[in-house]
Computed example of a mutant assay.
Amino acid sequence: MQNPFSFRLSAFTLLMALCVSSCSFNPNQQTPGEGYLQGEWRQDSVTNQKQLISYSLYHLKFSCDSFYVEIHSFSKTNTGTDTCMNAGHWTEYTKGTYIQRNDTVRLTGQFCNADYTLKDDKGCFRSGDYDELFKVTKQSDSLLTFAGTTDVIPIKARLIKRVSCHPKPI
């Protein structure tokens, strides 16, 4: 029969070995991100937008592993207070980090104010976490299509400015 103390010590040693082999510290510097995404991308229009009741246009910026998104929304119907909807046009901002797996990019971050400071949850529209998956299709070096999992209208974005990644300390 095995000593209870040695059994606990063996279990603790095994647990620590598993943790050390699978646990790691977060990096202290940005990762380079995806080279083809680096820059500013703008969606100029949506197919049949004049016939739509509501739609959004996106301006995306990718720098290393970080993203910044402006979502310009338009609506012909007033579903909220006019101080928020501004006669059917409003803008929301998000920032965070992204990762790509195969053809899908996951943006994980927070809704922000226009200056990219964290948004108060008492303001207009969405606040808190932003978590979105996009299937990315490269049409050319300067044209990408982002097909969101929560939206039926794809984002056809053209490159307006290429940037290089210079990783910064976190």
Rank of each mutant, 00 (worst) to 15 (best):
P154T: 02
A87F: 14
F12W: 07
I155L: 01
L9P: 04
S140I: 02
L18K: 01
K168Y: 01
S66N: 15
G80S: 13
S54N: 11
E40S: 05
H59G: 05
F12L: 12
T13W: 02
C19I: 13
V163F: 11
L159N: 11
W90G: 02
F7M: 10
G88T: 02
E92C: 08
L57N: 14
Q43M: 05
F146H: 10
G96K: 01
N26Y: 02
L57I: 10
S21D: 03
S140A: 11
F67H: 12
C64A: 06
H59A: 04
S73H: 14
T91L: 05
S142G: 07
E40K: 09
Y93N: 06
T91P: 09
K161W: 08
Q2G: 02
Q51G: 11
D65H: 05
G88Q: 05
C19K: 00
H59E: 08
P169M: 02
L159V: 06
H166I: 10
R106S: 14
C23Q: 04
T150L: 14
A147F: 03
C165N: 03
W41Y: 04
M1R: 15
L15T: 14
V69R: 08
S54H: 08
Q51K: 10
C124N: 08
P154I: 00
Q38D: 00
S54Q: 12
S164C: 02
G88R: 11
D82G: 15
V46I: 06
D103V: 06
N28H: 07
F67M: 02
F125H: 10
T97P: 07
I99L: 07
P169S: 01
L159D: 11
S22L: 11
L9M: 10
R162V: 10
S56L: 01
Q29E: 04
R42N: 00
T137S: 14
